[in-house]
Design a binder for these strands. Structure first.
Length: 463
DNA sequence: CAGTAGGAGCCCC
DNA sequence: GGGGCTCCTACTG
């Protein structure tokens, strides 16, 4: 059972000004923490996965998320205890939310019928943020970035887990009828729907099905399946926007990746029930009506495809040559690695790639490389940290939960940073100066026990 | 010697 | 103006 879930409470901003009183983001095993009832106005499990998991139900291999949002989950509305209008977080950032049927079936409050289906689906299909609402709720741009990023991560984790569990290719277009059947059955199981007798459809067909098609296909819960598919698509495309895949600047090394990305490009053109202009990810990333600040995507820097730093020797100093090729290999064909990398923020866009795509200035690129050069050092380091397979010889987590990381090779890190920023004269002295600037910004600090080359991300940057 | 810390001027977006 | 680069001095282990 896929098991990314969120438990919500209303607490307001925490000490970091971050809209979670408590946020736990852990992988692997469930650690049950008692919910603090003080100040809370209600709980609901809110997830791609319908069932709230007890601690014992969660499997060790299942990533999960347990969070407390600053809003009651009486969706879109009213704090029934305090009778205060509150804005649902989904209204602020329009993150895909579970389908109506899910909420109806699994809502823990007595009245799930107050949900308005259209509002939910609208949220699914509009992956944008409302800055005014966000500001009204005391969230600045950066907080919203982080906030949406976290939710996105949860979604991607859940999808990744489900794909791994079902043995599904991450490319929808590669789904055979058997794969399609597996997905449908899994979703039916998750949403306690009666699976259709004959559900052997390819991923391509699946993507092309409208809600009506789904409802014909599965009268009881077809809309749920359709909505769930939209959630998958939205979350996925938000990581890998279609135009990115359409970039003409792919290198030879990218070719073997294209099959895994074509579906996203095709989704808009061929089978998506939405018009291309309505594509939420497209809106989100092209900056028209999307979120004005993409710094959140520093984790997931949007750019043209460059899978491996070993391919990035076109940079000013070609300094990746001393990297072990094996370390740099993304191992596309290794099932586990391939899957995780595919979903990994850095899969499509190496942390080093934006330095190499500057000349690839076609229209599509422009939409997604506008932040080139503006990536922040802390984000860059996070990107490297999140790809230990490739960069553990450069920088690695010491304590992931704590946010402590160690620079294994100051030389290499500076070199990479220099490549990324196209600064051939970058060195660790300069890089560390930049790191120290983060002290007063509350992004990074030295850990209590000072160690050489060890730094610590402060919350929420450590999430 | 390498790393840490922080001031200051500058550039770029 | 913010973020980062660069250069600098002083200090530490």
């Amino acid at each position: 059972m896929a098991a990314a879930y969120c438990e919500t409470q209303f607490h307001g901003l925490n000490q970091f000004g971050f809209p979670f009183n408590n946020f736990e983001y852990k992988y692997g095993s469930y650690s049950s923490s008692p919910m603090n009832g003080a100040g809370s106005v209600g709980h609901r499990w809110n997830s791609l996965s319908p069932e709230p998991h007890s601690g014992t139900e969660s499997t060790a291999s299942t990533p999960f998320v347990k969070s407390e949002f600053p809003f009651d989950d009486d969706l879109f509305g009213i704090d029934q205890v305090n009778n205060v209008n509150k804005q649902h977080p989904m209204d602020m950032c329009h993150v895909p939310v579970p389908p109506l049927e899910y909420n109806r079936r699994f809502a823990k409050d007595a009245d799930g019928t107050s949900f308005v289906k259209n509002e939910i689906e609208e949220n699914i299909l509009n992956f944008n943020v409302n800055p005014e609402i966000a500001q009204d709720n005391g969230l600045d741009t950066q907080q919203m970035d982080i906030y949406r990023d976290l939710i996105l991560r949860h979604l991607i984790q859940d999808i990744s887990t489900t794909c791994a569990k079902l043995g599904l290719p991450t490319d929808f277009y590669l789904w055979t009828p058997e794969h399609g059947a597996r997905w449908i059955n899994e979703m039916c199981q998750q949403f306690t729907l009666q699976p259709p007798r004959n559900c052997f459809v390819t991923g391509r067909v699946l993507l092309g099905m409208s809600q009506k098609d789904f409802e014909m296909f599965l009268p009881e819960g077809g809309d749920t399946l359709h909505a769930q598919l939209q959630v998958w698509k939205t979350a996925f495309e938000s990581y890998h926007p279609p135009a990115t895949m359409q970039s003409s600047g792919m290198t030879a090394a990218d070719n073997n990746m294209q099959s895994k990305t074509n579906w996203m490009a095709n989704t808009n053109n061929q089978t998506n029930t939405m018009a291309a202009g309505e594509n939420p990810a497209h809106q989100f990333f092209n900056g028209n009506g999307g979120y004005p600040n993409m710094s959140m995507s520093g984790f997931f820097q949007q750019g043209t495809v460059l899978p491996s730093p070993s391919n990035s020797d076109t940079s000013s100093n070609g300094s990746s040559q001393d990297m072990n090729d094996d370390d740099m290999d993304i191992h596309m064909n290794t099932p586990n690695c391939g899957l995780s990398n595919f979903f990994h923020p850095g899969y499509m866009n190496s942390p080093l790639d934006s330095m190499c795509n500057g000349s690839e200035g076609d229209d599509d690129d422009r939409a997604y490389t506008r932040h080139q050069g503006t990536v922040h050092l802390w984000q860059f380091i996070r990107e490297l940290l999140d790809q230990p397979k490739q960069y553990s010889n450069c920088v690695r987590w010491v304590d992931r939960d704590e946010g402590t990381f160690k620079i294994e090779s100051s030389l290499l890190l500076a070199r990479y940073w220099g490549q990324r920023k196209n600064r051939s004269q970058m060195n660790y002295d300069k890089l560390s100066r930049s790191l120290r600037q983060y002290y007063k910004k509350g992004i990074i600090q030295k850990p209590e026990k000072k160690q050489r080359l060890v730094y610590k991300f402060l919350p929420p940057y450590n999430m």
